[in-house]
Computed example of a mutant assay.
Amino acid sequence: MSKPFDIELFLVGVLTGSQATQKRHLHQAKIIQAEIEVRWQRETPWSWQRKHLAWFLEHHLRQRSNATRYYYLLTVRLLVRRLETSWVFKS
Rank of each mutant, 00 (worst) to 15 (best):
S2T: 12
I36M: 11
V38F: 00
E35S: 14
G17V: 01
Y70R: 15
K30Y: 01
T16R: 05
E37F: 14
R39V: 09
S91G: 14
S86W: 09
V80I: 13
R81M: 13
T21E: 03
K30A: 13
E84P: 11
V80C: 07
F5P: 06
V12T: 13
Q28H: 08
F89K: 07
L79W: 06
I7V: 05
R81V: 15
S2G: 12
K51N: 12
K51E: 14
T21S: 11
T21H: 08
N66T: 13
W46K: 10
L74W: 00
L83N: 06
Q22T: 02
W55F: 08
V38A: 11
L9W: 05
A20T: 11
R42C: 08
D6R: 05
P4A: 08
E37I: 15
S86R: 08
W48K: 09
K23M: 04
A67M: 14
V12R: 00
T68S: 10
R42W: 00
Y72K: 03
Q19Y: 00
R62E: 09
F89N: 03
S86M: 11
S86H: 13
G13L: 08
E43K: 08
V12L: 00
T68Q: 06
P4Q: 09
K23H: 12
E58I: 15
T21F: 10
E37R: 15
W46H: 15
G13H: 01
R39D: 00
H27A: 12
E43S: 11
L15F: 02
Y71Q: 15
H52F: 06
N66I: 10
W48C: 05
V76I: 14
A34W: 09
I7G: 02
E35P: 13
G17F: 05
K3V: 00
T68P: 08
K3I: 00
F10S: 08
Q33C: 04
K23T: 09
R69G: 03
I7K: 04
A20Q: 07
T85K: 13
A29D: 02
E58G: 13
G13E: 12
L26N: 02
L15I: 02
W40Y: 14
H52P: 06
R50V: 08
S2C: 06
K23D: 09
H25P: 06
R42Q: 13
I32V: 06
L73H: 04
H52Y: 07
H25L: 07
V12G: 00
R77W: 02
F5A: 02
L78V: 03
R39I: 03
I31P: 07
F5R: 08
H60V: 09
H52V: 01
A67L: 12
D6S: 13
V38H: 09
S18A: 07
S91P: 15
Q63W: 00
E43R: 10
R77V: 03
M1Q: 07
M1L: 08
E58M: 14
K3Y: 00
S65E: 07
R81A: 14
Q49G: 12
H52T: 09
K23G: 04
A54K: 05
H25C: 11
K3L: 01
T16H: 05
A34L: 10
K3P: 01
R64A: 15
Q33H: 11
S65P: 03
R24Y: 07
R81F: 11
L73K: 09
K30I: 07
H59F: 14
Q63K: 09
A67F: 05
D6F: 05
L61Y: 11
W48E: 05
E58L: 15
L74A: 14
R81C: 11
A54F: 13
